[in-house]
C-alpha cells in the first residue's frame, strides 16, 4: 500500500474517530442510545464475520456466545461483586472457554453438519436458559446495578449514558482494532488461507484444524465480549438473549454490510438496527417478515453486501485502468 493510500486511510480513521467521540454530546438521548447499541451489535456481528467471512465456517448460532458473555458478566457482578472490568473479564473468559469447548467438538465437521450443529446448540442453550430460572432468571433475567467504575485513581459514575457510551466505544474500538491487526498478522493470514483453499493450506503445512479452532475461539470471544457490553448498556440480561433470531441477525448484518470485510458487520448493523428502532410499533409486527425477505433478496442479488460490492467495483475499475 503506497504512502498516499496509507495517509488517506489514517485520515479516514481520524475523521471517523472524531465523529464518534463528539457524537454523544450532539445527539439526543434516543439517538445516542441507538448509536451505543450499534457499536455493541456491530461487535457481535464482527464475531460472525470472523468465523464466516474470514474462515469460511458458517456459524448460525452466534447468540450462544453473546448470551454466555452476557451472563458471564452479570453473574460475576451479581454473585462475585466484581466491578465492570471484572465483569468484562468474566464475559471474555466464559465465552472463550465455551467457544474452545464447542469448537473442539464441531470444527472437525464438514460444512452442512457444522451449520446444523451450531443451530442445534444455540436452540438448546436458549431452552436451557429459559428453563433454568433459578440460575438465569428466565425471561425476566437478572438486574444489576453498577454505580461507579474505578478508572485509575478516579471513580467514574456510571449513571451517565455518555459515560456508558465512551466505555462501550472504548471496548468496541479496541477489540475491533485488535481484530484488524490480527488478520494482518501471519496467523490471521493463515486462517484466511484455510478459507480460500483448505487442501492447499494443508499441503503448505498448516494445521488447519488448529487454525479453525483458533478462529472459532476468537469469533466466540468477540461475540461474548459484545454480550458483556449488553448489561452495561441495559443494566440487566435475560434468557431471551439466547434466542436464535439473534444469531440470524448477526448473519444478516454481516451479509448486508459485506462478509469478510470486518467493517461490513458494523455497516450492516448500523443500517438495520437503526431501521429497526425507527420503525413504528405497528410495523414491528411485520418486521421479521421484512428481515426474512431482505435476507433472501440480499443473498441472491447482492451476496457480497454493501461494502463487498463497493470493493469489487473499485477493484474492477482499478484492473480496467491498468
Amino acid at each position: 500500500m503506497s504512502l498516499k493510500e496509507r495517509g488517506k486511510r489514517w485520515i479516514l480513521f481520524g475523521i471517523l474517530l472524531a465523529l464518534l467521540i463528539v457524537a454523544p454530546h450532539v445527539l439526543d438521548p434516543y439517538r445516542r442510545y441507538i448509536l451505543t447499541e450499534l457499536l455493541m451489535w456491530g461487535l457481535f456481528a464482527l464475531g460472525f464475520d470472523i468465523i464466516f467471512g474470514k474462515t469460511g465456517l458458517l456459524n448460525f448460532g452466534m447468540s450462544s456466545f453473546f448470551g454466555m458473555g452476557s451472563y458471564g458478566f452479570v453473574l460475576a457482578v451479581y454473585h462475585l461483586h466484581v466491578n465492570l472490568w471484572g465483569g468484562l473479564l468474566a464475559a471474555i473468559l466464559v465465552s472463550l472457554v465455551f467457544s474452545i469447548l464447542v469448537g473442539l467438538l464441531i470444527t472437525r465437521f464438514a460444512s452442512h453438519y457444522f451449520v446444523v450443529f451450531t443451530i442445534v446448540i444455540s436452540m438448546i442453550l436458549f431452552l436451557l436458559a429459559m428453563n433454568l430460572r433459578e440460575f438465569t432468571g428466565g425471561d425476566e433475567g437478572i438486574i444489576i446495578r453498577l454505580r461507579t467504575l474505578p478508572l485509575g485513581p478516579w471513580d467514574v459514575s456510571l449513571r451517565s449514558a455518555i459515560t456508558k457510551y465512551y466505555i462501550i466505544l472504548g471496548v468496541v474500538g479496541t477489540a475491533f482494532f485488535l481484530v484488524l491487526k490480527f488478520f494482518d498478522s501471519p496467523l490471521g493470514r493463515a486462517i484466511v488461507a484455510v478459507k480460500e483453499n483448505e487442501e492447499r493450506a494443508k499441503m503448505i503445512g498448516y494445521d488447519t484444524a488448529r487454525l479453525k479452532l483458533i478462529s472459532f475461539a476468537l469469533s466466540g470471544t468477540v461475540a461474548g465480549l459484545a454480550g458483556g457490553l449488553y448489561p452495561i448498556l441495559n443494566n440487566n440480561t435475560n434468557a431471551e438473549i439466547f434466542f436464535w433470531i439473534l444469531s440470524g441477525k448477526a448473519v444478516l448484518w454481516s451479509v448486508v454490510g459485506g462478509v469478510g470485510t470486518l467493517w461490513g458487520p458494523f455497516i450492516g448493523a448500523g443500517i438495520l438496527v437503526y431501521a429497526e428502532d425507527l420503525l413504528s410499533s405497528w410495523l414491528i409486527n411485520i418486521y421479521p417478515i421484512l428481515v426474512g425477505g431482505l435476507l433472501i433478496i440480499i443473498i441472491l442479488l447482492a451476496p457480497k453486501g454493501i461494502l463487498g460490492t463497493i470493493q469489487s467495483a473499485l477493484m474492477e475499475r482499478a484492473l480496467q485502468k491498468s
Binding site: F52, L58, F60, S111, H112, V115, I245, G248, V251, V255, N285, I286, P288, I289, V291, G292, G293, L294, L295, I296, I299, L300, P303
Partner: peptide, 28 residues
C-alpha cells in the same frame, strides 16, 4: 420464488434463504 435460484450455490446461500423463509413463515 426462492429455492431454485440457490441450487448449486454454496451452503450459506441456501441456509440463509431457508432462514429468511423461517422468519417469514413463523411471523406470518
Amino acid at each position: 420464488t426462492t429455492i431454485r435460484f440457490s441450487l448449486g450455490k454454496e451452503v450459506i446461500v441456501t441456509v440463509i434463504i431457508t432462514y429468511g423463509l423461517l422468519f417469514i413463515l413463523e411471523q406470518g
